[in-house]
């Protein structure tokens, strides 16, 4: 049986891959923010698995990367909050939350001609 660090390390690789796919494919900006968080979680779990490999002195993991992970989680939360606030402001101003370059609010009717 493989050890926990390797198992979760591989799990983290899949999370990052899945997040990258979702980031490209999902058109909704909020889904992209969630996808970015999934990528971040993958990176954190990978880092946590590496920290677990450095266990010693009665601790279950290397405390330095674990402390950096707490910092990382807090900063990831801040970045997510800022992204969500930007998105909500975009929605309030434009009435839609699309990132498509040719989509404009109804004020410019001719812009809709080239849409898929």
């Amino acid at each position: 049986m493989i050890d926990a660090a390797t198992l979760y390390g591989l799990c983290a690789a899949l999370l990052v891959g899945g997040g990258v796919y979702a980031l490209i494919v999902n058109p909704q900006p909020l889904r992209k923010i969630v996808a970015f968080n999934v990528i971040g979680n993958g990176v954190f779990v990978l880092f946590g698995a590496i920290a677990h490999r450095g266990a010693g002195f009665g601790w279950g993991g290397d405390p330095v990367p674990q402390a950096l992970l707490i910092t990382g989680l807090v900063v990831a939360f801040c970045a997510t909050a800022l992204a969500v606030a930007l998105l909500l402001r975009l929605f309030d101003e434009a009435g839609s939350a699309t990132l498509a370059p040719d989509a404009r609010p109804p004020a410019a009717p001719e812009a809709g001609a080239g849409e898929r």
Partner: peptide, 29 residues
Amino acid sequence: LVAACVTVALGIAVLALPDPAPTLAPQTA
């Protein structure tokens, strides 16, 4: 395809991690 490449690269990196693992636990202790 891009996602699969990222996953495979990370997976290889996980399986190739150095042994014994580098650690700062002794310095902290």
